[in-house]
Design a protein around this nucleic acid. Structure first.
Length: 738
DNA sequence: CTGGTGACAGTTTTT
DNA sequence: CTGTCACCAG
């Protein structure tokens, strides 16, 4: 039975526990994906469960894809009969099939965060509410939270007057969604749960269909997701969940790791299996991570162990500021690569906030080294991509008002707020969507034209027409005829051909390529989108458009991480979950940054920061570098920093510092002797510059010193660089010009 | 209707 | 120091 062969006893137990509920608590690197895939294969090949009776849900498309890839080796073509996907994708599929029970059309569109925010703003406007008191973002948060707890506007119990207003906005927002035949991300879950609760027959159908349910990253489920799987498994209880409380880092998005406890309570007969053998890291790394996480209260203690005993100590580094921090990282990576032990792609640099990536990027660029950046602005969130997708959504469904108002004046075609407001109010008066209102205007205009010879001045027509005669009206008609011309060919043209037509007819290319480098970047993104569209060229046109739109709605990040490129990866700690690297640098280990200051007054938030640190450290296979700075630029000013409390939790014997570089005593507060305050061994000690001195900088080239002031043991110079303007730079970064 | 200016706020982000 | 948004002058 090859399926069980390469599993350790615990993993094997998890795979073989076929009947009833099973909870697998899987530490980092303990092979949970392996357990999941092998269990599916075991169910099919050994227990004879038909593949179509198995549902496996994940949180990310990436996880789903990885699972499919691995399963392909184990079960081959039968893979296609399994239901594997994200919660949202699985729910969307169910909802399209059961649309008749729901008051939505099965062609509903899925709104993302931006669309959602737009609709909330509209709701606020319609209710005549002040957007300063009722900030759209805050309202959005309240609505999302409610939906994740399966609370609809009618059952919403406001805690404060503000929440009462939020409830009203919520109700209005839901109506707007329905008017647009749209669901937002959270609806996919909430509406599915409602469907199951209100239609027992439908629920039974799915309960019978899926005899085995598996859930990955169970600690990240929210209430809605938990209720969903609980409902689905309500009859047979064959629910297999894998999770790790210590890696729960999405509390702020509604994830509730207490679902693990709930699971134990709701399924008391559940078998619990601990996976504690780690196949990733050295013992040193595991020990350090355990010391950090063990200060958390609400957790099951696990003792991770590995056969990779010992290992290199954790390296702790103090840098003068974020520049030097970045410089250290880049140089250390270069050194490790030069030593021959590691290749560039073995390294990851992790940080708490995206803003920290910039300095790092600059350092890599200065050294002429390539790097991979994860996250930042996501592809499908870029303006140009969203614009073009809105056009396509509009072609697919011209009644989608959110998409319509997004693009009706992009590129600018003379339809400003006034004209938009006019057509909107016409639509409201007639109780029709804007698209229909546009058609009414067109009919009226045609009628007027045909009468223009003799009867144009008939009093009955004049007042109605007067309003849209002129620029606004013509612009609207122009837009409508564009849209209609695309709709006319919608079922013949393939997605990328439609895209080309839109770009062509709207002059979108010229709109983007305004001569700036950013414009070129944007145009490049359009090309990328076109490449994605090309992948749907095989399908019949109408189907191609529909599945393209579904796919891009639910696949936000194009998992752009290109495995083939051999370069260091820059990413947030959150983005690092689920990944592993031989060498991990965690930068910005300072109080206020990591842990973030927002967590100071909330013990639960602080525990989450701690878990985040745990996740970061456990990504490493061989080496970990923890770096903090003496001072860091915050917005405009630069502030002195305190080393992160998490550093104190790692026992001294696991740590190695470059000599007395860090005046650090454990376990007491980090002793920072007054001695070491200067930037590190970079250029020889600052010689003392005065205005007029000529200096050279590795990136900016030659410049002239304008002013100088002491900064610690270093000095901060204002330098005018040839063609680069004036920069403030530490003396140790420049060399005197001979 | 557009493009410019000033006030204001500013973690993390699976879908 | 950014980016976003409301507001005002062409």
């Amino acid at each position: 039975m090859d399926i069980l062969e390469d599993l350790n006893p615990r993993q094997r137990e998890a795979v073989e526990a076929v009947d009833g509920p099973v909870l697998v608590l899987a530490g980092p690197g303990s092979g949970k994906t392996r357990v999941l895939t092998h269990r599916v294969a075991y169910l099919i090949r050994v227990c004879g469960v038909p593949p179509w009776q198995i549902m496996a849900v994940t949180f990310t498309n990436k996880a789903a894809r990885e699972m499919k890839d691995r399963l392909h080796h184990l079960i081959g073509a039968r893979l296609g009969q399994l239901t594997i996907g994200t919660f949202h994708a699985v729910c969307a599929r169910i909802l399209r099939r059961e649309a008749q029970h729901l008051g939505v059309d099965s062609s509903f569109v899925i709104y993302d965060d931006d669309d959602q925010l737009g609709l909330i703003k509209q709701a606020l406007k319609e209710l005549d509410l002040d957007h300063r008191t009722y900030q759209p973002r805050a309202i959005q948060g309240a609505i999302r939270q409610a939906k994740q707890e399966l609370v609809d506007p009618d059952s919403y119990v406001p805690k404060t007057y503000w929440h009462e207003v939020a409830r009203r906005v919520y109700a209005r927002y839901q109506k707007l969604l329905r008017d647009n035949n749209a669901l937002d991300f959270d609806d996919l879950l909430m509406v599915t749960a409602q469907l199951f609760r209100q239609h027992q027959d439908v629920l039974h159908k799915y309960q019978r269909r899926y005899s085995h349910i598996l859930v990955d990253e169970f600690q990240d489920t929210n209430m809605a997701q938990y209720q969903l799987v609980k409902l689905l498994a309500g009859e047979h209880h064959n629910l297999f969940v894998v999770g790790d409380e210590d890696q729960s880092i999405y509390r702020w998005r509604g994830a509730d790791f207490r679902n693990i406890q709930r699971f134990r309570r709701d399924f008391p007969e559940a078998k619990t299996i601990l996976l504690e053998q780690n196949y990733r890291s050295t013992q040193t790394i595991l020990d350090a991570a355990r010391h950090v996480i063990s200060r958390n209260t609400q957790r099951t203690d696990k003792r991770l162990w590995t056969e990779k005993e010992g290992g290199v100590p954790i390296t702790l580094v103090e840098a003068y500021d974020e520049q030097e921090e970045a410089e250290f990282v880049v140089e250390e990576i270069s050194r490790l690569v030069a030593s021959g032990d590691f290749s560039p792609g073995d390294h990851a640099v992790m940080y708490r906030t995206n803003a920290q990536s910039r300095v790092l990027e600059e350092a890599f660029m200065r050294h002429g080294l390539p790097y991979k950046l994860v996250g930042a602005t996501r592809f499908y969130q870029r303006r140009e991509v969203k614009d073009l997708l809105a056009y396509l959504r509009l072609i697919h469904n011209p009644f989608d008002q959110v998409s319509l108002s997004r693009v009706i004046n992009v590129p600018p075609r003379g339809i400003g707020p006034k004209t938009l407001g006019w057509i909107q109010s016409l639509a409201d008066r007639r109780q029709v969507p804007i698209y229909t209102a546009l058609q009414l205007v067109k009919e009226a205009a045609e009628e007027q034209a045909s009468r223009s010879n003799e009867e144009a001045d008939t009093p009955a027509y004049r007042p109605q027409m007067a309003t849209f005669s002129g620029r606004g009206g013509n612009a609207l008609l122009g837009f409508l005829s564009l849209l209609d011309s695309w709709i006319a060919v919608r079922d013949e043209k393939r997605v990328h051909e439609l895209l080309d037509r839109v770009i062509q007819d709207t002059g979108y290319e010229a709109h983007l390529r305004d001569g700036t480098p950013e414009g070129e970047d944007r145009w490049e993104n359009v090309q990328e989108l076109r490449r994605v569209a090309m992948e749907y060229a095989e399908l019949p046109p109408a189907e191609g458009l529909a599945s393209f739109l579904e796919e891009v709605a639910l696949v936000s990040d194009v998992d752009n991480l290109d495995e083939k490129v051999d370069a260091p990866t820059l990413l947030t700690l959150h983005a690092a979950k689920g990944l592993e690297f031989p060498v991990v640098f965690i930068v910005g280990m300072e109080e206020g940054l990591f842990p973030h200051s927002r967590s100071f007054d909330d013990p639960e938030a602080m525990e989450e920061e701690r878990r985040l640190c745990y996740v970061g450290i456990t990504r490493a296979k061989e080496r970990v570098y923890l770096i903090y700075t003496f001072r860091r630029a915050m917005y405009a000013s630069s502030e002195e920093c305190e080393p992160s409390r998490f550093l104190h939790d790692i026992p001294q014997h696991l740590i190695q510092g470059p000599g007395d570089l860090m005046g650090r005593g454990a376990p007491a507060p980090i002793a920072r002797g007054p001695a070491r305050r200067q930037p590190l061994p970079r250029a020889t000690s600052a010689p003392g510059y005065k205005p007029g001195d000529r200096v050279e900088h590795p990136a900016f080239g030659e410049g002239v010193v304008i002013s100088s002031r002491p900064a610690g043991d270093d000095e901060e110079l204002e330098i005018a660089f040839v063609g680069r303007g004036i920069k403030r730079i530490l003396a140790s970064y420049v060399w005197p010009c001979k």
